[in-house]
Computed example of a mutant assay.
Amino acid sequence: MQNNTASSATKANHQTVKMMNPMNYIGTANAKLAKHFWIRYGTEDSNTSVAVPTILAQKLKNAGVDVNYKLQWGTGHAGDYDMQAMFKWAEEITK
Rank of each mutant, 00 (worst) to 15 (best):
Y81E: 04
A6C: 06
G74N: 14
K32Y: 01
W73P: 14
A85V: 08
I93N: 01
D80R: 12
Q72N: 12
A78H: 08
K32W: 02
V52L: 08
A31P: 03
N68E: 07
G74K: 09
M23I: 00
K11R: 14
N68P: 05
M86H: 08
D82V: 02
T10H: 09
N21C: 00
I39P: 01
K70W: 05
W38A: 07
K35I: 03
H36R: 04
V17L: 11
K95D: 09
T28H: 00
A57C: 03
V17D: 06
A34Q: 10
I55K: 11
K70C: 02
T10A: 13
Q58I: 00
T94W: 08
N3M: 13
M83D: 10
A6F: 14
V17E: 12
A78Y: 12
Q72A: 15
H77T: 01
K88M: 08
M23Y: 00
V67H: 05
V67R: 07
D82N: 13
L33C: 06
N68V: 00
A31F: 00
S49F: 00
A6G: 13
N24Q: 02
A51S: 14
K61Y: 05
N68W: 04
F37P: 07
T94V: 09
K88W: 04
A78I: 11
F87V: 08
K59H: 12
D66K: 11
T16M: 10
E92K: 15
K18V: 03
A85T: 10
A29E: 15
A90D: 02
Q72W: 02
T28K: 01
S49C: 02
N47K: 10
N30Q: 15
N13S: 11
K61P: 06
D82I: 01
W73S: 12
A63S: 15
Y69N: 06
K35T: 13
T43D: 00
G79L: 02
L71C: 06
G76V: 03
A9R: 15
Y41E: 04
N13C: 11
N21G: 00
N47T: 11
D45T: 03
A63F: 01
A78R: 07
T10L: 13
N3E: 15
T48H: 08
A6H: 10
V50M: 09
M83K: 09
A6I: 14
N30E: 15
T54R: 04
T75S: 10
L71W: 07
A29L: 07
D80S: 09
M86L: 14
M86I: 04
A31L: 00
L33E: 05
H14C: 08
N62K: 09
T16C: 07
A9M: 14
H77P: 01
L33K: 08
K35A: 13
A85G: 14
W73H: 12
M19A: 14
T10Y: 11
A6T: 13
